[in-house]
């Protein structure tokens, strides 16, 4: 369910590939030239090096991959390295040690933050994917005209400032904020509600809103790709709408659901802005404490260990959840 998959299923491309093989030309090169004896292909170093289609593909991706290695793989490797070192005042003791991990995983306050972060982001993922699915379904199956406008409307928030979307919720939920002042103006409450801001619920609401746009697109794409004749076949064979949905639409859209869940669950576990702005002390998450290690406390190795530990925990939780989901759906089928 990635763009590459789409390419592979594109009949046009497939036909082109078969044609080239039949003609016997170099794949990707000009099949016609191989027949056309009048034009001898000039043997150059370039052509020699990049004869195979795969090799030329790798050559074209190399600059991007080099940058990714340098700015993604190398820094994360350094982060892992740092997590085994010790901060001694201003200098770093580079003797490898597991002390940071013992502290990150052993101390009760860090454990609370890990569990809370995972709990909050699990809830956010469930809520966001749950409320996004009907919308993606609506646009994929029900909208006939103006699909483009719907997609634009649902995509725009995806690209607008995350910081500002979170900030909007601080303004809304605040003690003297939009909700409280609005309700007081209407005479429904006499003094501001204090439970709106600075707690885990505020974090969940804000994150669910901020990540809403991330869930729709992957689910929509997977729904759009479902072959409609399968649905007709199910209907002809006597499945009602509900059974048809459970046995065809839902399983076939699962890759999109999993994609959406991952793209929400992983970043929200490590979210810094939302808990910092609307979380208060009871809504603090793991990223906030990591930032403190790299800022005020200046214990980078401990911060690195906390980051690595939380990413590992997230990866394990995600793998576990995906497997559980696969099994559940297989059973329904």
């Amino acid at each position: 369910m990635n763009p590459r998959g789409v390419a592979a299923h594109n009949p046009l491309l497939q036909r082109g590939a078969i044609l080239l093989n039949v003609v016997g030309g170099r794949p990707g090169g000009s099949g016609v030239a191989a027949i056309d004896v009048r034009r001898e292909p000039k043997p150059g170093l370039w052509q020699g090096l990049f004869r195979s289609e795969s090799a030329r593909g790798y050559a074209l991706t190399t600059p991007m991959l080099a940058v990714l290695f340098l700015t993604l793989a190398a820094p994360i490797a350094l982060l892992v390295l740092y997590s085994f070192w010790t901060q001694m005042g201003l200098y770093l003791d580079q003797t490898p040690t597991l002390a940071n991990y013992e502290r990150a995983l052993g101390a009760a306050n860090y454990r609370t933050l890990f569990l809370r972060s995972l709990g909050i982001s699990s809830l956010v993922t469930l809520i966001t994917v749950g409320i996004a699915y009907p919308i993606a379904y609506f646009v994929a199956f029900r909208v006939r005209r103006g699909k483009f406008l719907w997609l634009i409307a649902l995509t725009v928030p995806f690209w607008t400032s995350y910081l500002l979307r979170v900030f909007a919720w601080k303004v809304i939920l605040g003690y003297n904020g939009v909700i409280n002042s609005g309700l007081m103006q209407l005479g429904l409450i006499s003094k501001p509600l204090e439970f709106l801001l600075y707690n885990p619920t505020a974090v969940i609401v804000t994150l669910a809103h901020a990540y809403a746009a991330f869930a729709i697109l992957p689910i929509y794409v997977s729904l759009e790709k479902i072959d409609r004749s399968l649905l007709e076949a199910a209907a002809d064979l006597g499945d009602g709408p509900f059974r048809r949905f459970m046995r065809i639409t839902l399983p076939l859209s699962l890759p999109g659901v999993i994609g959406a869940a991952l793209v929400i669950f992983v970043p929200t576990t490590g979210d810094y802005v939302t808990p910092a702005l609307v979380g208060g002390p009871s809504g603090t998450m793991i990223a906030n404490i990591i930032q403190v290690q790299f800022g005020r406390v200046n214990n980078w190795p401990l911060g690195a260990a906390l980051a690595i530990a939380s990413m590992t925990a997230v990866a394990l939780a995600a793998i576990f959840a995906i497997q559980a989901l696969r099994i559940a759906v297989a059973r329904v089928r």
Partner: peptide, 12 residues
Amino acid sequence: VPEIVLGISLLI
């Protein structure tokens, strides 16, 4: 990858 991890690893 959580953005904070990108941030701190690039900082390192």
